[in-house]
């Protein structure tokens, strides 16, 4: 198969992709592909070229996203995405750094990096695709698995309550926090656009479907549509939840929760500016 044949009469966004690597390895119906489309549309509407950005992925299905986009890419150790992002931002503060992480990568293995990046207000865009389990390794229970869900490692149902990632990010000090879902591509694109445009630590949680593992174990079906509907039923816009709090019990709130300005992280030591040495 030669690469040029893909581009003929194809989706215009394919020009931002590494076409020789397509079709990508995501399962049929996986939400990660929809996140790529939304991210590229958001970057395009801001006149940002993905080729000038640095994309970082750790380990997991979501972490493969920067591999398929034609951008500078770092892909390696599990959970250490934000540690690398810190190094890149300190060396080249003008570089746009985008981190793609799954829920396991961001909150389980990389949980500590996540809260400290939020505390320091590191100027990166942190896109968390929450598919409710460790999908690449076979569907094990993860910190975002809903209470009571059957997974590979919890055959009688998980007994752990999940994180509220957006509340955690807001408490830790992130300056842009939003949650959206894959079945609303317009909202997903608009939140990713705001996050890319924001100066500071911007977190976007995207509720995504994993039909292969979470769908089969927890719902008993591998149908992407069934899982998309399941996520839709369990989420409610934050504005609607304010008006009718009784309908929002146990549901994921969707919307922008934090959008503030704060000085960004420029290193742990403040060096005096040129000509200011010796002055206190």
């Amino acid at each position: 198969m030669s690469a040029p044949e893909l581009h003929v009469g194809g989706n215009p966004l394919l020009k931002y992709m590494r076409q020789e690597k397509l079709p990508h390895f995501f399962c049929p119906g996986c939400g990660c592909g929809q996140v790529i489309t939304a991210f590229l549309k958001a970057a395009e509407s801001l006149n940002l070229d993905p080729g000038t950005m640095v994309g970082i992925g750790g380990v997991g299905c979501t972490a493969r996203i920067p591999v398929y986009i034609d951008m500078d890419c770092l892909h390696g150790v599990h959970g250490r995405t934000l540690a690398w992002a810190t190094g890149i931002k300190l060396h080249k503060p003008d570089t746009k750094v985008v981190v793609f992480a799954g829920d396991g990568d961001a909150l389980s293995i990389g949980g500590n990096h996540f809260i400290h990046a939020a505390r320091r207000n590191l100027d990166v865009t942190f896109i968390v695709v929450n598919n409710f389990n460790f999908a690449m390794t076979g569907g094990q229970v993860a910190p975002m698995t809903p209470d009571g869900s059957v997974t590979m490692t919890t055959p009688y149902g998980s007994s752990e309550p999940p994180f509220d990632m957006c509340a955690l990010a807001a408490t830790a000090g992130a300056t842009y926090v939003a949650r959206t879902l894959t079945s609303n591509p317009a909202q997903m694109t608009s939140f990713l656009k705001n996050a890319l445009d924001h100066k500071g630590f911007s977190v976007v949680e995207i509720l995504s479907q994993c039909p292969t593992h979470f769908g089969r174990y927890a719902l008993g079906t591998g149908s992407p549509k069934a899982l998309v509907d399941w996520i839709k039923e369990r989420s409610i816009p934050a504005a609607a939840a304010e008006k009718k709090p009784e309908e929002a019990v146990g549901k994921y709130l969707l919307g922008e929760f934090v959008n503030i300005e704060r000085p960004v992280f420029r290193g742990s030591t403040v060096y005096p500016a040129a000509g200011e040495e010796g002055k206190k």
């Binding site: 194809g10 989706n11 966004l13 394919l14 992709m17 397509l22 079709p23 990508h24 995501f26 119906g29 996986c30 939400g31 990660c32 592909g33 929809q34 790529i36 489309t37 939304a38 549309k41 079945s183 591509p185 317009a186 694109t189």
Partner: peptide, 8 residues
């Protein structure tokens, strides 16, 4: 077009 995960 915006829903297709595979840009197909």
């Amino acid at each position: 077009e915006v829903t297709c995960p595979d840009m197909a």
